[in-house]
Design a binder for these strands. Sequence first.
DNA 1: GCCGTTTTCGGCCCGACTGTTTTCAGTCG
Length: 580
Amino acid sequence: MSKNKEIAEIFERMADILEFLGDNPYRISTYRRVANILSELNVDVEDLVKSGKIHHIPGIGASSVEKILEYLRTGKISKYEELKGKVPEDLLELMNVPSIGPKTLKLAYERLGIRTKDDFIRAVRSGMLATLPGFGEKKLQNIMRGIELWEKSKERMTLIEAFEIGQEYLSYMKRLGDIIERIELAGSLRRRKETVGDIDMLVSAMHENWSKIHEHFVSFPDVKDVLLKGETKSSVVLKNARQVDLRTVEPHQWGAALQYFTGSKEHNIRVRDIAKMKGLKVSEYGVFRADTDQWIGGKSEEEVYALIGMQTPPPEIRENAGEIELALEGKLPKLLSLEDVKGDFHIHTNWSDGIGSLEQMVETAYHMGHRYVVIGDHSLSSKVAKGLDMERYKQQWKEIDRLRKRYEPLGFYILKGCEVDILPDGSLDLPDEFLAEFDFVVASIHTRFSQDNTYRILKAIENPYVNLIGHPTGKSYGTREGYPLDMDRVIQLAKETGTALELNTFRADLSPENVRKCMQKGVFIAIVTDAHAPAHLRYIELGVGLARRGWAMPELVLNTKDVEGIREFVYKKRKLLAAT
DNA sequence: GCCGTTTTCGGCCCGACTGTTTTCAGTCG
């Protein structure tokens, strides 16, 4: 775990404890804000300390800097050690349960002597909790339901899962037809965060239709439980334990609401703060004059931001990580967009472990609007993935040649590629003379995930025929951290050799932090779906979003090149390494 | 705990729903 995340977690825990103790709420939200800033930061906190920049991050004041320095020096924060002694830590875990907050826990702790999570659950079941003032039957039911829900869905969804659920729900909602003026998925899904807690849906419609819309929303066939249902706000839990929220607003409030429900929370707090300094008030219903409460705009997001005097930051970078300052100065960079993407670099067919035929994959990519695709089936040593030997690759090339006759006249190119295994000693699973015959080579690690793999990756990068390092950090979506890796050295060597690093949509590897490093160092990234079925190809849209979270610029994304550009990229590396 | 285009003190984003409550607290996003 990076130091950023470690320290962020401690600040989050301290906030929990302080909340339980009933401390100053503003101090608590400050701690949470520091935690959030640290975990969203695209830079190592250690680097910030070295450069002294740590003292100039808005939201992190002297007292927090002190704690951060202490942690880096000693591995501990004494304030946290002290706070830990004041509460039963096990019990605080329940703070994440829906319907349970600090007040409930504290009451149970003080009045019933409850010390552990299990104590608490027993107290609910035995009816002991019902003896407390203000705890009626309904409330207890909600708490019970909250505990069940929490146990089932401790993990956040992957972006892909959230996207799938969201799309299905959207098309269900659209059956209502014209009474819905606009509808969109907001929240962390719209910001393309690699994991999503719950799905936020926003609808604009005339007020008289709202109740009908909410009725329809809670009647979605996969709904298991309705958590709340009102005129403006409803919330359901699906059979798969995922939560979906709906908000309705008037058509003229659309932009303000979308801005608000897209978040992030940190971004919004900052925006409202700035609005306030300018004598304005921003809510999900619009932008208002602070003195008279007069509505002055909010039809579109652009209008909201313009009224506050800033550019509209793309949703993916709304994390209060520097985008607000740039937007105020009118200096937001132009980020990569889906329209810039011309191809995909790493897709599988049923020649190895994909479930689509070569032809199906190509056909789908063509109809999506791609101009080219790199076929990247596994090499032999990936036995579970039915890896190909040289003979079978040659057979596959014959089929590619046949398909080329059909697609090249349409301006669509099929590049012969492979995903060659990087072996334990860093050598590759196919000989150089053979690799030289591919149009494009992806090299990836599929074994020994627990060791430091820096030397293997560096050695693969040095190979003149390797153009892209597949899923470089070995991370598994949102949860597993990947193997230890000296990313700075990898990026440096990638830069020197003209090798690209892969942003793998299926695994959410590279992280935004690493994308940003690549951008700063001038290293190319390639966004790939790693598609194993035709339907996976459309996830390229999510890959673009993940790249945008790392402030990816079109100039350094391989997918923006046309097929000649790709051939040139390959040729340049071969020439460079042959010369040295 | 943080911060400053009225401020180094005194504010801190803003609103919805539920439940148990005769006017609001707790929780959530």
